[in-house]
Amino acid sequence: MNKRIFHWAGLLVGLLMMAACVQPGAPAAEATQAEATPAAAGVATAPSIALVLIGPKDDNSWAASAYSALEAQKAKGAKTAFSESVSDADAARVMREYVDQGFNIIIAHSFSYQDATFEVAKDAPKVNFAWAGAIGKTDKNVADYDQPFYEPAYLVGILAGYVSKTGNLGALYGFDIPSCHAMGEAMLAAAKTINPKANLTVTAVGDWGDVSKAKEAGLAQHDTKGVDFWIGCGEGPTLGSIEAAKQAGGYTTGYVGDMAKLGPDVVMSSIVWNMNPIFDAIARDTAAGTFSGPYYQFGVKDDALDVVINPALQDKVPAEALAAIDKARAAIKDGSLKVPFVPQ
């Protein structure tokens, strides 16, 4: 028995060695070279950036926004790296790894990375960090970046005011944190300018990723309060609202990513987040040596946030709604409209 197993093991080792020897000509080697070229020939002022993500980079939402901004930096010649699906317990270790690798900038794209970020930043004073706190908490080498999703949520509210038949709007939050709370309130405020009877039903699902729980919450909002227009804060709640809208009828809103494909008949609009201004600013400040733990605040007026209408549902959107959204967007940009921020 033992001998037979050893034979098999020997054979497997042999196979691996063969596979390994064949390897050098394979695509991986090319990929490594291609990656190495821009860094070697890169602009001296393009600092290297590492990104730590809490979810998968292609989530069509929160993580994807940051990942595409990282890709943009890479295209500009920066050396980049990223880790996805990093749990809070692992975040500090991954960041220390990047510090060791000599990265100039580390972006910790989750508010739950707070303690890990500040701890590692203290031990690595020459590296610049940024975390997704949106509360203005910074340190000498730690920036925070704002997420004023309530601004585009106001534009969504205009749409809701025109489109919702019942005037009963629903909001599904992962948790009732300020950035979520302000989204629902901004949507309601805008809807009321169109339909004075508009009202808002809020459910904090208690989970950022639990789609089925959020769907049940959305259906409950529909059944008990007649909700027919949703906004979600967090990926799970938003996907849940899409499923609820598919089943109960009505429309919902994509969350920090164009989610029209996920529900072509129900996702009427999506809030989209362009994180390039944030990444550009961090890279610029780091290259110039002027980085001193700023609080980056980019919103609708900086083209960092906006609302896109699902082309498949374009004909369901009244023309005056589109005009009103354009007008409000322009008003936010020129400063004549200040969207109310209601954090709790």
Binding site: L12, A28, A29
Partner: peptide, 24 residues
């Protein structure tokens, strides 16, 4: 130990399939 080795070997094959170098 042999089990771990076998697991790593199968893993090496997957890494190779993905176009990367298992040894690296």
């Amino acid at each position: 130990l042999l089990g771990a080795l076998a697991g790593l070997l199968v893993g090496a094959f997957l890494i190779w399939l993905s176009g990367a170098n298992p040894i690296t």
